[in-house]
Design a protein around this nucleic acid. Structure first.
Lengths: 207, 207
DNA sequence: GGAAACCAACCGACGCGTCGGTTGGTTTTG
DNA sequence: CAAAACCAACCGACGCGTCGGTTGGTTTCC
């Protein structure tokens, strides 16, 4: 293997970056591979050297983005002790990431769902993955006696769903201007929903 | 518009019914007009007599379905006195309708997003419309002193988002088997989220 | 009979994926 | 060490199927 890989690696990244830009601006179906090639200062042939087909580009992008987001979530959660604080940190991380990368938010909230049958399976997994992160923390909280027992699976999904709806609406309409603002209103709702009075347990933390 | 013949009206309905079936089974983009024509025992030309283009078919379908669902919600809400009960009835109506018409759920939760840019606007409106219905009831509840003041807009969206997530997951995975079952777990969460203890206010009502 | 409703056949654009060919760096060899 | 051989990476024109939409003629209904 004649080591020419760094250049190729970088090209591959460029392709995925261009794909994110274009998919999130024009949607999966309306994006042509030619556009991605142009956006990544490559050629169609170059794109097809790195990916077998258009679908694979999208899937790779989805996986890369998911992995990146999960990583950030892990880090943020690791900085917290309390399971509720961990769950809270996870939500906040998602919100902040999307707030700073609207294209990413578009991708996850709109385009990925609309990209067609073949991606539904993967999207279902990803959504469940995020909900499961919440669920695990709630389970811990119940185990530690912080929460009364409850259906944590539904609660995890409900929390995620609430967050997703706020985010989707922001993607659609740009409201509220600062996405994080919505969270200050959402947080007490979520806390109360699992039986925590606003100030009983969770102290609002740094930043 | 020179009085539509009853036969033509019926044909138009058949087209929309076929469109619902096909769009929800194969998605907007993957559905060809030929398929809709075939599914409605018409011809392509016949379809194009009733609708100017494919987009209009989808939009008409979306609007018809939305109107129908809103109507059911209105009816269900009218049977309740209490604003919280009204909100609850609205959610339950949505859930039941989707539970009985999975194709409709697919359409709203998945395919509508994949139909392209032009539909995002309309979908945003529809989502906001549903959230606003909840919001109005919460506002009433606050006004009547049933609830402590809270950000009802966020709460309305959060409620809707939680419901949507549960439903979307059901569309994806078929879990839980009976969609209504999820609501029995979700309801107390929602109630608590706005500061109602499970049994303080709302009595579980008939059916 | 004539307008409304319907139809089969047709058209043209578009986009995915392919494929023959190029490039520029790396390894081999005399 | 330099020429020859090699190869991963890259390029872009084009074939081909698909599909939205059109058209000109036919049937149905008043």
């Amino acid at each position: 293997m004649t080591t020419q890989q760094p250049r190729a690696q970088e090209r591959r990244h460029r392709i995925l970056d261009a794909a994110l830009r274009t998919f999130s601006r024009r949607g999966y179906r309306d994006t042509s591979v030619d556009e991605i090639a142009e956006g990544s200062r490559t050629s169609k042939g170059g794109v097809y050297f790195h990916f077998p087909n258009k679908e694979a580009i999208f899937l790779a992008l989805l996986n890369r983005s998911t992995a990146h987001l999960l990583e950030r979530i892990e880090t943020a959660m690791a900085a917290q002790e309390d399971p509720i604080a961990k769950a809270d940190a996870a939500l906040l991380t998602v919100l902040r990431t999307f707030a700073n990368h609207r294209a990413l938010a578009r991708l996850f909230m709109l385009e990925a769902l609309g990209a067609g049958r073949d991606f539904h399976q993967r999207m279902s997994e990803i959504r469940s993955e995020f909900a499961a992160i919440i669920q695990r923390q709630l389970d811990d909280a119940v185990r530690q006696g912080i929460l009364q027992p409850l259906d944590t699976e539904v609660a995890g999904r409900a929390w995620f769903g609430a967050l997703a709806e706020i985010t989707t609406n922001w993607v659609f309409s740009g409201q509220p201007e600062r996405l994080e603002d919505a969270f200050t209103a959402l947080r007490p709702l979520l806390m109360r929903s699992v039986g925590l009075t606003s100030n009983s347990h969770l102290e609002i933390r740094q930043r």
